[in-house]
Design a protein around this nucleic acid. Structure first.
Length: 396
RNA sequence: GGGCGGUUCGGAUAGCGGCAAUUCCAUCGCGCUGUAAACGCGACGACCGUUCGGUCUACGGGGGUUCGAGUCCCUCACCGCCCA
């Protein structure tokens, strides 16, 4: 159900349309994160105001709950993640304070042992799936069950159950985890009952070129409707040839992987979404990404503009608009930096308080609008030019 | 006039004689990439040196006891409550 409308002449960027039971998604597209089938701080009716085309919820967090469309309260395409990432972020990641992207201040810790079962923070990974604690109870999630639950949740796009490794894990562990992810991929395909759901397989392989290529070829060879690219990236100059600039290894990884993917299948880069990364990923042929940055950073007081982002805490007394000439509903209603600052300073206890709600709407609109502009630039054959112009002005 | 209670880093608070001294708020700085995170981390008397310290100035003012006082004693000032 994916149709490519145009391919960029200078880069691997493509313009496409992905049809789902709940509507079509024009790609490249940002996917707004709604883990618990709600965008934090927003009312359902707010979501439509932000040019959001699709959201992603999480099987791990929604276990046992009913239909995601009902929970979200909006009719639009919804993805569900398989819960595979939580095995990493709540286990190894939480225990060692490591994210999926390596940073300079990351504490050096040992890789996990490639031996079959490893346990971090009560999360135990086995060949059959993963045992973990939730609400004080021991739970299980595996490929077959994840697909079953995702079909029950009723998302339009679902993901295979995979294992995300840490950027600190060594080759041996990644190899083992990749074999597991590949086995699970086949089981996910076998477990699916509903053919009207779009199922994405996920490429892993960590920071290792041969594993990444192997994974790309393998996942591409299976009858998935789309391809996810997951896992961890470093961004330190620890690998020969990497300059150490932020996002470098991500681009490198995409250069290894994308050439082995079928053109006609949509590609989703999981969990990536800084402005610069978005441009780079689109340039490498990515169609979809999801990321918590627009929403989480909004809640933390960071506002995105075409000049870069700024922290609202610093704007006690300027009459400045959030962003000059911004057409988002918040800016159009005349909310200034000073106004938002004072809202952030005020009572934060109500669940949908105005400060965080306004900031979230603004940022979501910013990212969705950026992707719209990117689509327009591809349509006009001017993606490369637009990227350069935008990033020159966007100071981080 | 008498009886208590108080006075600690911007505000509010802790503080059995070993204290540059607790916590909260505020302030400042940093971080946030398939949501553990509608926050997290750090700094917050001054000066000096690299970690780690070092020196000085500090718990209303003054005096005393003590090796050592925010902490005990005396006194003064101010504030609060109660009895006249």
């Amino acid at each position: 159900m994916f149709k490519i409308l145009k391919k960029d002449k200078d880069t691997k960027a493509r313009l496409g349309v992905l049809s789902t039971p709940h509507g079509t998604i024009r790609t490249p597209s940002y996917v707004i994160v709604a883990t618990h089938a709600e965008v934090k701080c927003l009312r359902p009716s707010d979501i439509k105001k932000t040019k959001t085309q699709v959201v992603i919820a999480n099987t791990y967090h929604l276990r046992g709950k009913a239909n995601v469309h009902k929970l979200l309260g909006v009719k639009m395409p919804i993805m569900t993640d398989s819960g595979g990432f939580q095995v990493f972020s709540l286990g190894f990641g939480n225990k060692f304070g490591v994210g999926k992207i390596l940073r300079k201040n990351t504490r050096p810790v040992r890789s996990r042992s490639p031996l079959a079962t490893s346990s971090s923070n009560g999360v135990k990974i086995t060949e059959k799936g993963v045992y973990f604690m939730l609400d004080g109870k021991k739970r299980f999630l595996g490929p077959e069950l994840s697909i079953k639950l995702q079909e029950k949740l009723g998302a339009d796009i679902i993901f295979a159950f995979d294992e995300c490794t840490s950027p600190l894990d060594n080759y041996a562990y990644n190899k083992k985890a990749l074999e597991r992810t590949h086995r699970w991929a086949k089981e996910c395909l076998k477990a699916r009952k509903r053919k009207d759901r779009i199922l994405f397989g996920i490429i892993q392989g960590g920071r290792f070129k041969d594993l990444r290529i192997k994974s790309a070829k393998f996942i591409a060879s299976l009858p998935f409707e789309g391809i996810g690219i997951g896992g961890s990236f470093g961004n330190l100059p620890v690998r020969p040839g990497s300059s150490g600039r932020a996002g470098d290894e991500m681009v490198e990884t995409l250069k290894w992987v994308v050439p082995h993917l079928p053109e006609e299948k949509p590609r989703h880069l999981l969990g990536i979404g800084r402005v610069e990364d978005v441009f780079n990923a689109v340039e490498q042929g990515i169609d979809l990404f999801d990321c918590v940055i627009p929403t989480r950073e909004a809640r933390h007081g960071r506002i995105y503009t075409k000049q870069g982002h700024f922290d609202i805490w610093k704007y006690q007394s300027t009459g400045l608009a959030l962003e000059k000439r911004c057409r988002c509903p918040i800016c159009k209603s005349g909310v200034t930096r000073t106004k938002l600052h004072s809202l952030f300073k005020g009572d934060q206890t109500t669940l949908t308080n105005r400060a965080k709600r306004y900031a979230t709407i603004h940022n979501m609109w910013f990212f969705n609008n950026l992707l719209e502009e990117i689509r327009n630039s591809i349509a006009k054959g001017k993606f490369k030019e637009f990227k350069k112009r935008f990033l020159t002005k966007f100071k981080v």
